[in-house]
Write a protein that binds this DNA or RNA. Structure first.
Lengths: 223, 223
DNA sequence: ATTTGTAATACTGTATACAATATATATAAT
DNA sequence: ATTATATATATTGTATACAGTATTACAAAT
């Protein structure tokens, strides 16, 4: 007997379904920054009770997507220029740590998966959907995070990336950005393959800084 | 009219009370690693309903103090040597970032508060309680975190420190450790006062690495 | 016109009840 | 004796009800 395991994810408690639904809605702008999240009306809309909605909202708060005030309720977080800068400032040093660790610990199997990801990405650059590219991008970085063999780092970095999801379409929208993305990933991959720390760090920094630039140029903030 | 603001913290919802209670219990070892957290029995013990207990447990999970499995429940996280190493690995680079930013942005007022903290600490070294020293230690670092003017960084670093609370007594227990702690804080303070990044980084690294050593020497892990 | 007081309303906070699932126990079958 | 099956029990997941608190609207007073 082999490879038989329950796909526990299929069980997905309601709160997680609600969570995913709301997160998508926020990221896609269906619920706007500053808009209030009323438990009862969300529950009615989604056809569930308040309990899972409450728990989902709390999860969203820890991801920084909503802000809660006691006895007043929750609203979609307004992300300011400063907030984004703060997130990137932290991500920057953690991404550096991540590739350094990955250089030491990445397995051949993980390298193979990165290569496969690059191929898929390449195939998607011109004809793939934004959603496809977005998840490939996410997947690429998750592989590297996991290669660090540091759960805490994986958790924090994944979280920080999620807080920038709202802006991911910016650098996936145009063909030129897609090509840049691919070439930067390739560069990171090659550096990791060679286990060259300095090169890896340089590549990841370039990647991050480019994304920051792309976002800053294309977004104008409310506040 | 000036400086009048409601101390909203005094309202403290039940879930936060429960959260604090449980956290203290875990940190102090009243609830042991691996022990299950049963909602209903905790609720009965504390004289509240399941709802605030549930929410408190979820908060504890995001702090890494408990581990939850869907439909099975929560248990106090078993912290392994590896876990602690992982936390410190991340903290290390973030603490470096923090002092670098603090060098640039710390205000005279914050420096004054650090100095005051050092005086209080000095007064406590020989005769203070472990709890006094612990909160002074926490306060010292919180001032530096806040000096970075990066909310995200403050949030993550505070969180990572909390995950090591269980071990704080190790380096507060003995007089020699207390003295070391004070002199290291002094060194960090002086470097920040001079706005000397290299010196600050060196001082904070020494501080972290010393703590790691102290903990590693004094704790033996279950797993 | 501005402030104050009061009531109505809309929420969140908390408790509780019920449903679904996992775990433990006991019994029967081989 | 071991496995399989059934049953009871414990515990989480979800829904709902009620209590307490904020917000709003509006009337009364100055």
């Amino acid at each position: 007997m082999k490879d038989i395991s329950l796909k526990i994810e299929d069980y997905l408690p309601l709160r997680d379904v609600v969570f995913n639904t709301l997160r998508d809605a926020i990221i896609n702008g269906d619920i706007e920054p500053g808009e209030r999240l009323i438990e009862i009306s969300l529950a009615d809309t989604l056809g569930v009770s308040r309990t899972p909605v409450r728990e989902a909202i709390r999860e969203l708060e820890t991801e920084g997507l909503v802000v809660m005030t006691p006895r007043k309720g929750a609203e979609v977080a307004k992300i300011s220029n400063k907030d984004l800068t703060d997130v990137l400032e932290v991500r920057r040093v953690l991404e550096v740590l991540a590739v350094e660790l990955a250089c030491e610990k990445i397995t051949p199997e993980q390298l193979a998966r990165l290569e496969e990801n690059l191929n898929d990405f390449d195939a998607c650059v011109s004809k793939g959907s934004a959603s496809d590219l977005s998840s490939l991008d996410e997947n690429f970085h998750e592989i590297i995070y996991n290669a660090t063999d540091n759960k805490r780092l994986v958790q924090i970095l994944s979280n920080l990336r999620k807080q920038m999801y709202r802006y991911r379409f910016v650098y996936i929208k145009t063909l030129s950005h897609r090509k840049t993305l691919h070439s930067e990933h390739l560069e990171i991959f090659n550096a990791l393959k060679e286990k060259d720390k300095a090169k890896s760090v340089a590549a990841i920094l370039k990647h991050i800084d480019n994304q920051k630039k792309a976002i800053m140029e294309n977004i104008h903030f409310d506040c």
